[in-house]
């Protein structure tokens, strides 16, 4: 049986389809080039030199690695009061063991991913913006945020945090940067809330004794 010859007239290139693809590619590159070429600027960020005195802060931000951070404010122990009471009831444990458990609880419950897992955006930025909004709503209050960063992280992570904190209208968030790791906090003597009277204001502070 003779095979049927394939009709050679249908071998034309589909110009319209090709044009469609080419146009889509062109639009993609045009748009992506626009985003890539958004201008960057060099800004000046002022950071006070830390004082060599026992430090306490209203907020402690410990950068753990490029993906997570620890955020402790004075309300941490209030939020975890039930769990902390449960640990205190464990009388079969030594005081040191209970303290270690409390620290672990505080660290575990307050460690967040920088980029939230549900894809809703930058969690660190959102936390900082909440603090900025709070500071803007209470211009009479003064806040102090301590930013701790491990040696190996790019310093730009700290600068980005400072940049957000410096957006306050009334400049009532002060900040300081020091080197340190999450292990320093894990091995600290205690993490506690302390009420400090500053003039007529009673201020809640987070105190970590290293």
């Amino acid at each position: 049986m003779a095979f049927r010859k394939e009709n050679s007239t249908n071998k034309k290139m589909q110009l319209i389809s090709l044009m469609d693809v080419v146009f889509i590619l062109l639009i993609f590159f045009l748009v992506s080039i626009f985003f890539a070429s958004l201008p960057n600027e060099e800004r000046r960020i002022f950071i006070p030199t830390p004082k060599n005195e026992p430090g306490y802060a209203q907020v402690l931000i410990q950068l753990i690695d490029e993906n997570s951070f620890l955020y402790i404010d004075p309300f941490v122990t209030e939020k975890l009061v039930k769990e902390i009471t449960q640990i205190d009831k464990k009388t079969f444990m030594s005081v040191a063991q209970r303290l270690q458990q409390k620290k672990e609880l505080i660290i575990t419950k307050n460690t967040y991913p920088i980029i939230s897992q549900d894809g809703s955006g930058n969690f660190l930025k959102a936390k900082l913006m909440t603090l900025v909004t709070q500071a803007d709503a209470h211009p009479e209050e003064k806040y102090f945020a301590m930013i701790r960063c491990p040696d190996e992280l790019p310093y730009a992570v700290v600068i980005d945090v400072v940049e957000i904190l410096s957006r306050t209208k009334y400049k009532n968030i002060q900040y300081g940067c020091v080197g340190g790791t999450i292990d320093d906090i894990r091995n600290s003597k205690s993490i506690e809330k302390k009420m400090v009277r500053e003039g007529s204001v009673l201020r809640r502070n987070v105190v970590i004794q290293f």
Partner: peptide, 17 residues
């Protein structure tokens, strides 16, 4: 920081978008 009040602040010149 070791110079205490002789250097009260530092200025970082950093790139931002």
């Amino acid at each position: 920081s070791s110079y205490e009040d002789l250097i009260p602040s530092l200025v970082f010149r950093t790139m931002f978008r």
